[in-house]
């Protein structure tokens, strides 16, 4: 089952996503948190902490550096570009924008 969480900036999308993912996991489900924000921070609300959230490099960065996403299975992607959050939730990040574009 896939759940998309949307809303205005600051409405609480990440807090709700994090708590919801943890709640599903506690109810016995296999859960993946997919952070689609270009400023990823779902890790914080999932409880993996500031440093690990920062460390989790974006999939997009690495795919851009030559690896093709379709060369991987979904499981590979989760394995290579994911991290473990409490209650067995697996977290992965889609992309991020950290730097200015050249003129």
């Amino acid at each position: 089952m896939r759940v998309a969480v949307v809303g205005k900036g600051g409405s609480g999308k990440t807090s709700v996503s994090g708590v919801l993912a943890r709640s599903f996991a506690r109810a016995g489900h296999n859960v993946v948190g997919l952070d689609c924000d270009t400023n990823p921070n779902l890790g914080l609300s999932l409880g993996v902490g500031d440093l690990e959230t920062e460390r989790l490099l974006s999939l997009r960065d690495q795919i851009d550096e030559g690896e093709q996403s379709h060369a991987h299975t979904w499981d590979d992607i989760l394995q290579t570009y994911g991290t473990d959050a409490p209650d067995g939730v697996r977290l992965t990040v889609v992309n991020r924008i950290d730097n200015p574009e050249p003129d």
């Binding site: 400023n39 914080l44 959230t53 924008i97 950290d98 730097n99 200015p100 574009e101 050249p102 003129d103």
Partner: peptide, 20 residues
């Protein structure tokens, strides 16, 4: 908050642009 500070840190990178 760490979330807000994280975004702020990234925004500082704007100084790398020649149009900063």
């Amino acid at each position: 908050t760490p979330k807000s500070i994280q975004v702020a840190k990234r925004l500082r990178n704007i100084t790398k642009a020649d149009w900063s």
